[in-house]
Design a protein around this nucleic acid. Structure first.
Lengths: 159, 159
DNA sequence: TTCTTTGCAAACCTTTTGCAACGGA
DNA sequence: TCCGTTGCAAAAGGTTTGCAAAGAA
């Protein structure tokens, strides 16, 4: 088991990610767009987990573009398809959340239900068991949601 | 690892469940209500996973009461608190789903993304590892969401 | 009588969609 | 030019809330 942290993406990585997006866009017969790239950049640079609304705020705050909510909602699925981001924190309620997936390893989450802190970890044993279970039940495994809930150390001491 | 099935609740179990609800209701200084009991009964007898909307249909179909959607939405959290049902299938999208929890063991789910079939299983190894992870990260574990996605055997052969 | 519960309608919140104007290739 | 993208407003879908009437204790 290894605790992991989302490293900030550097401009090199940003370039690679946008290139990857461009490839997908081209492959789908779509056209490039400045607004979409701005949304993609904001998503890639976002530290942590974000909703469409939160992403919209930072896009606007950066002031490069005047993206609208509908556009963000239209762009997000494409960014997922291109592998730049992934859906995350399914259980957080009110609003689908995303996090960067580009050049990040797979990980699960444990969330403090008191202070909402999220800690990410990698644990190969889970993946092994998941494959094992799936096979035994006759499924070809394609994905999973795995989130733990608890009370973090500082909240235990506070209460 | 053991595949498990939700057994139908019998009238004995139903009685115990409603009694448990009554205790919680009393403890919270609330009053008993026929509509709430009807919703609880329908939830307990529901085979499988249901949304508020689906539960409402069967309550109406049984014709005992003319429950309204708002009432169902108001009753569901209480049934969760009383341990009669639990939230489930977080990832199913459009509409929170629930399943009976009363007198059922803990289990996880694997869902066929093609035909939507849900298989339930118990695997103590997951629980052990989850406690292990939590402890090492300084959390007191209180719950988890664990859903696997894949393609079931018959969908593999069909496609 | 005193609260809780319910029906009902309206409000809410997130997400989707239709359409005309805009913008790449 | 051709077609994808965007802004905008309206709609949609699930859930919540305010309020008066009905129902327990």
């Amino acid at each position: 088991m290894r605790r992991v942290h989302a490293p900030s993406i550097d401009s090199r990585g940003l370039g690679r990610a946008l290139e990857q997006l461009r490839v997908v866009v081209r492959a789908k017969g779509l056209k490039r767009s400045g607004v979409r790239d701005a949304v993609a950049r904001a998503a890639l640079e976002y530290e942590g987990h974000f909703t469409a609304e939160e992403l919209l705020s930072v896009v606007r705050a950066k002031g490069e573009t005047e993206a609208h909510a509908a556009t963000v909602y239209r762009v997000l699925p494409l960014l997922v398809e291109a592998g730049l981001i992934q859906e995350s924190l399914l259980s957080a309620g009110q609003g689908q959340r995303y996090e960067r997936a580009f050049e990040r390893g797979h990980h699960d989450h444990i969330i403090c239900t008191s202070c909402k802190k999220v800690v990410e970890f990698e644990f190969e044993a889970f993946e092994v068991l998941q494959r094992d279970v799936s096979e035994r039940l006759g499924f070809r495994l394609t994905g999973h949601v795995h989130e733990l809930f608890g009370i973090c150390k500082s909240c235990q001491h506070t209460s």
